[in-house]
Design a protein around this nucleic acid. Sequence first.
DNA 1: ACCTGAACACCGTTCAAGT
DNA 2: ACCTGAACACCGTTCAAGT
Lengths: 231, 231
Amino acid sequence: MAAKRSGARSKRSPRIGEQQQPVQEPRNEPPLSRERIVATAVELLDAQGLDGLTMRRLADRLGSGVMSLYWHVDNKEDVFDLALDSVLEYRGPPQPIESQAWREKVFHMLEDWRASMLRHPWSASLLPRRALGPNILSRLELLSKILSSAGVADAGLNVAIWSLWNYVMGATITRASFDVSDDDRNAAQQRLTRLSERYPTIERSRLLLDNDWDGAFREGLGLLLDGLSPR
Amino acid sequence: MAAKRSGARSKRSPRIGEQQQPVQEPRNEPPLSRERIVATAVELLDAQGLDGLTMRRLADRLGSGVMSLYWHVDNKEDVFDLALDSVLEYRGPPQPIESQAWREKVFHMLEDWRASMLRHPWSASLLPRRALGPNILSRLELLSKILSSAGVADAGLNVAIWSLWNYVMGATITRASFDVSDDDRNAAQQRLTRLSERYPTIERSRLLLDNDWDGAFREGLGLLLDGLSPR
DNA sequence: ACCTGAACACCGTTCAAGT
DNA sequence: ACCTGAACACCGTTCAAGT
């Protein structure tokens, strides 16, 4: 899937074939570009997680030298910002929702937001540390418009938006962080049952085992929207 | 404030004084211990942020060799886990709240939670990536108990707890990430006004400038508790 | 305009060794 | 039981240079 550098490969297999065919770059790569860098960064993040993204590895995948990246991109932080925002584009509901049904519109956008982030779990732990890119701002703008035209007064608009944002971010980040490797999950599970007598109520309600995340997300969001609805 | 290694200092100043007094370790440090390591890690994180914590720098502050840390601690991840949980201890309200006032109890614990994290902003961006330590679990246990004894049915308990957790985490993480250096803030502000015509509703409601974070937090939390109250 | 390799100043951690 | 320095395999980024 990823382009391999021929140099690395030939070093790995010390075959005795007398002339190492130079194996001109396996595919002639398209030229480097911001878009290609970001797309590849997302691939790499999906495959290796947050710590897996390295300027050197990124360049490797792109079949270029490390320093070539710096022509198109400021630095590693920049790559993170771009990758994050690129993953959060919103295309709207499949077919338009009738205009009065503001509740459904909000639900669709926020569920899509959560789903996008869960498709790229690194994005959840990245968001808290990064700037708001254009795609994030667009979603906030849309949310503002929906709520505003649904009759939420200007005075309550910010509280409403931030409450929804907080809820979605918290839910998504939590969900993503529970979605770890099996090793970690086993370790956590072990520690919990070992300590179960210290946390009896949690234990009884199976708080940490209950994994109907999607259902809980929708229910909680419903409650919140009830509270926020213009009276 | 931090202990300086005498070796480093003497190398830095090639004074001609014939005998470099060995300057026995500036203070005779207390012996290394898990507790001292964690406390110093928190200091370092407070001072330098998430990227500022380095095993080497940590050892430096402790006046020990880097590898000495590894006797007391598994690895860097371990240090992060311990530092995070150490900052989230809950001591309860200053004077006991009368037992029926469950709403106040919830408010106090959650506001304290948020405040603790904001006192150490790195904790907010760390939480989503780390395991739940004992102090976090204790808070969840307490929350469960309060809600349960307030009459929330077992069936609704998990939704209630996760909704509150989500809200608090989202709010705190968001707040902490907006609380960045002035440089970043200026940059963000610039970009926003430059793009203001693309996000008119946000612009109008001053969503990103409104910084009554504490008030918004309480209001939203109130709405959520209304929705969660046993009927 | 776009790409490059060498070099610098760092990292976390393994290992074999000291007391 | 506790601590150590040397060494390894990495990092991100500066710089001076190539086309």
